[in-house]
Design a protein around this nucleic acid. Sequence first.
DNA 1: TTATGTGTATTATATGTCTTAATACACTTG
DNA 2: CAAGTGTATTAAGACATATAATACACATAA
Lengths: 123, 123
Amino acid sequence: MVKIDYRDPRPIYEQVVDGIEDLALRGALPADTQIPSVRQLAMELSINPNTIQRAYAELERRGVIYAAKGRGNFISDDIASLRARRLDEIGAEIGALAGRARTLGATEEQLRGWLGTKGEDRE
Amino acid sequence: MVKIDYRDPRPIYEQVVDGIEDLALRGALPADTQIPSVRQLAMELSINPNTIQRAYAELERRGVIYAAKGRGNFISDDIASLRARRLDEIGAEIGALAGRARTLGATEEQLRGWLGTKGEDRE
DNA sequence: TTATGTGTATTATATGTCTTAATACACTTG
DNA sequence: CAAGTGTATTAAGACATATAATACACATAA
């Protein structure tokens, strides 16, 4: 479901949040799919249930999952809008990095090259 | 010289490091320019000298400044290579974000648009 | 109804990072 | 020699993270 990297300086709960959000936004977990229970995932990852509880609370706050007391946690409907929002954020990050790169003297060719994979026009 | 933003979740010493590195890489502080002493900058920013000490140690580790005991701290020569390295890092970040954006369904047009300012070809 | 598995909330403890505080010492310069 | 530098050390507090141990309400299947 998710993997924890203990060399990653980010807190565990954040890695869990990002991991599940990633699966949801990519469509790997369709809407209304049930995800592991708090205790299940804690067992699987060998971490404390409270840590998963915190991660799930954050995922619910973000609208990635919804909780049904006594039944479990499920992937939210309307992942599309979450995906769009996330793309906006990524776009803003890329824009900021591009501006910073230009400040340091990067050329437009470099910038386009960093985007990779398409429109490369190699000589 | 540098400004601290207390709403910024990053530690103070890190903000100082990034601020001075930025000034150096942009060329705002030429090579061999003396920067404020540990105690001076601490006074100016109303923070503890130990925090500046830590920031300067990190800047020296990165090669942005060099220290001369009893005299002060100075901007390093060969800022050019540091700038190049930083641009490589930014390029890698942009590449990663671009890949992630494609995974979420971003179009090449979107990606180019996010780079901003040039080659927009607006209709 | 009961048992089991859910989500949820609470309190306590331990650990690590960040920051401040207070010194101390070696070095450079006027 | 005095003042200003870098540098190192020890202590304390605030805060975030994670674990531990419960407790309780709800849903579902036996």
